[in-house]
Write a protein that binds this DNA or RNA. Structure first.
Lengths: 254, 254
DNA sequence: AGAGTTTATTGATTTAGATCAAGCATTTGT
DNA sequence: ACAAATGCTTGATCTAAATCAATAAACTCT
């Protein structure tokens, strides 16, 4: 995009020995030297098993984490002990950005399956970013992007019906997998129906019913945790609220 | 907190001639010199009238904005023309952080009443932050804080009932006003019931009914847009989900 | 100041999705 | 390999909040 020393994501991947450093590299504007320095502070491929904690709410924040393979859920626990799922993190995605403010984590994180993560000590990253304007810029962008995500979630929870939520969820996973070179229409749902329903603000029963209905309608093929999306276009329509023949939530014009 | 040159928020306020620069200063760790430099790039007190746009979705992003007096709503428009309110911005609060990623605004912003804003060219701020580690750190924190807010909204929209949502909304305004030296229990609701309901993911009628019920129960005194909170403690209980005698949404334990 | 428009309230009715209840399937642990 | 526990699905019922409908109050504009 901007600078003169633009390098490709491919180059990065090689330079980083396939570590998911690319999470730090939206459209990439770091020089090869920057990447090397970045590469030096990354701690690589720590393995986790299903149910392992990365951190709990209130833990001191020391490092950002990038999922290499597997998946992580982040959640917040309320007084009465009930959880609220905040998000699912797939390969290439970052965890911990919310913790910079107070050097404390504001949520817990747990592995949903066997997972590898890379870790980046934030002190070092911040220091490096001070010496490296392009990296500083990337970090601002990265944080900003995360803020932008909120829009979608507000849309989802604020005005979408149950079908739309589930379809949106599936399409979101699809696109995120695709973006990382996995199949966009055939993947493994590492999270439980319970987690999904919690994340979508629905009851488990509702999610389960919608899965079976989508199945009956030939939109998906869900065998337990393995899901195939058979009709991406239709799912996208549903996600967008074009329900049967153009249904939508109550309009609202200023 | 950290550094040796910590100065108080009071000092800042004076240094900035009461401009709401303090939005950039969570617990403050900028030196007086930093503040002066920051001060120099800020464009002060641009006036807006009710209904004026600050920017629309897709507009190029050039400056961060801080509300000095008045209030702003941010919202996103979907294909069918319906709006989704993303947030309300009170004095001292920042607008535009979501736009850094692509140098384009991801939402629209409109003044809810007569409003003054300060503007900070982002290029200059970024440049300055590069020369000023403490400012760089503040910016990371600021962005991170915004990401952390998401938690609360997810809680609100994901598991709270209508009463809880309205109570949470009122308490949130109360605290934000209090934090800026306004009354915590007596304020002006610059946004319409429509905006409130949209933000809370409820129907206008529902919000209206809850306002009148809260009124009947002696919790608030709402004359149109002027609201008095008469029983903060009880409102907080309701916001937390301690409805009549300990009601709560379906629990969920991992 | 009064007609017209927007915004808010209140009531009646409907409905999407939650809750309750029960039965299967799948994993886990010994 | 078996029992126990956990997670998933399906059906019946209930309810919170949406929708529909109508009125009333508050701004706007000339």
């Amino acid at each position: 995009m901007a600078g003169q020393n633009v390098i490709s994501l491919e180059t990065i991947k090689v330079a980083c020995q396939n570590c998911s450093l690319s999470a730090l590299c939206l459209p990439m504007t770091l020089t090869p030297e920057d990447v090397t320095r970045l590469d030096n502070i990354i701690e690589r491929n720590r393995p986790l098993h299903r149910g392992d904690y990365l951190h709990s709410e209130g833990d001191p924040f020391e490092r950002l984490r990038v999922v290499t393979t597997g998946s992580i859920k982040t959640y917040s626990t309320s007084d009465d002990g009930s959880e609220r799922i905040l998000g699912f993190h797939l390969p290439g995605e970052l965890i911990g950005l919310e913790a910079i403010e107070n050097s404390r984590h504001r949520c817990s994180a747990k592995a949903l399956e066997t997972t590898l993560i890379c870790e980046i000590p934030f002190d070092a990253l911040e220091q490096l970013s001070h010496e490296t304007p392009s990296l500083q810029h990337q970090l601002y962008r990265l944080l900003s992007r995360e803020i932008g995500h909120e829009t979608e979630i507000l849309m989802l929870l604020g005005k979408k019906g149950a079908d739309e939520r589930v379809a949106t969820f599936l399409m979101s996973l699809s696109e995120r997998f695709k973006g990382r070179g996995f199949s966009a229409s055939d993947f493994y749902l590492s999270m439980s129906r319970f987690d999904i329903s919690n994340y979508l603000g629905l009851a488990v029963e509702t999610v389960s019913r919608i899965f079976t209905r989508f199945q009956d309608e030939g939109l998906i093929n869900a065998k337990r945790k393995h899901v195939q999306l058979l009709n991406l276009a239709r799912l996208q329509e549903i996600a967008d609220g074009n329900h049967h023949k153009g249904r939508s939530q109550r309009g609202y014009h200023s």
